[in-house]
Simulated scan of single mutants.
Amino acid sequence: MPATMIAEADLLKRIEAAVPLAALQRRKALKAAQAQRELTAEEHDEFAQLTDEIELAEAGRIDLLSELAALRGTTLPEVARQLGLGRPSSPLRLISNS
């Protein structure tokens, strides 16, 4: 397998795993709870911490997508389109529909 294919496969794997699914699911659950009632102080702190964690992971994922775009000799928006990720100017769309 050529080195570029190996590098691309590695990047795709890292892009897929960049944002922890458990953090996304918990934040979504807290967001749903917030729509129904006021969050407790502990839940609010957890929501804020998860949001920070996810935002950092999203930034890392965008960096990985940029690396993939460079490897493919194309642009970040084109790579996002190829992978069905939505507009790269909307980082949340890159990881979920939450």
Rank of each mutant, 00 (worst) to 15 (best):
K13M: 12
R14I: 09
R14G: 02
R14P: 01
I15C: 08
I15Y: 04
E16I: 07
A18M: 08
A18W: 06
L21D: 10
L21R: 15
A22R: 13
A22C: 02
A22M: 03
A22D: 05
L24E: 07
L24C: 06
L24A: 04
L24I: 08
Q25V: 08
R26S: 02
R26L: 05
R26P: 00
K28C: 03
K28A: 12
A29I: 06
L30Y: 01
K31H: 08
A33P: 00
A33N: 06
Q34M: 11
Q34F: 05
A35I: 07
A35F: 01
Q36G: 11
E38L: 14
E38R: 15
L39C: 09
T40V: 05
T40F: 00
T40D: 06
T40S: 14
T40M: 04
A41Y: 02
E42V: 09
E43G: 10
E43N: 13
H44E: 13
E46Q: 14
F47H: 14
F47K: 15
F47L: 15
A48S: 15
Q49V: 14
L50K: 15
L50E: 12
T51P: 07
T51V: 10
T51H: 12
T51N: 15
D52V: 15
D52L: 12
D52H: 13
D52C: 11
E53R: 14
E53C: 08
E53P: 01
I54K: 12
E55R: 09
L56N: 14
A57Y: 03
A59M: 08
A59R: 14
G60R: 15
R61L: 04
R61I: 03
R61K: 13
R61A: 07
R61N: 07
I62V: 12
I62L: 13
D63W: 03
D63K: 14
D63H: 10
L64Q: 06
L65W: 02
S66F: 00
E67Q: 12
L68R: 10
L68C: 04
A70I: 13
L71E: 06
R72G: 05
R72H: 05
G73T: 12
T75R: 10
T75N: 04
T75A: 05
L76Y: 01
P77N: 12
E78I: 11
E78F: 03
V79L: 05
V79E: 04
V79I: 11
V79P: 02
V79M: 07
R81V: 06
R81H: 09
Q82G: 03
G84A: 07
L85R: 12
L85Y: 01
L85S: 09
G86Q: 03
R87P: 05
R87E: 09
P88Q: 09
P88G: 07
S89I: 10
S90R: 14
S90I: 09
P91C: 04
L92Y: 03
L92A: 10
L92M: 10
L92I: 15
L94W: 02
L94R: 11
I95D: 00
I95Q: 04
I95Y: 00
I95M: 02
S96P: 00
S96T: 04
N97D: 01
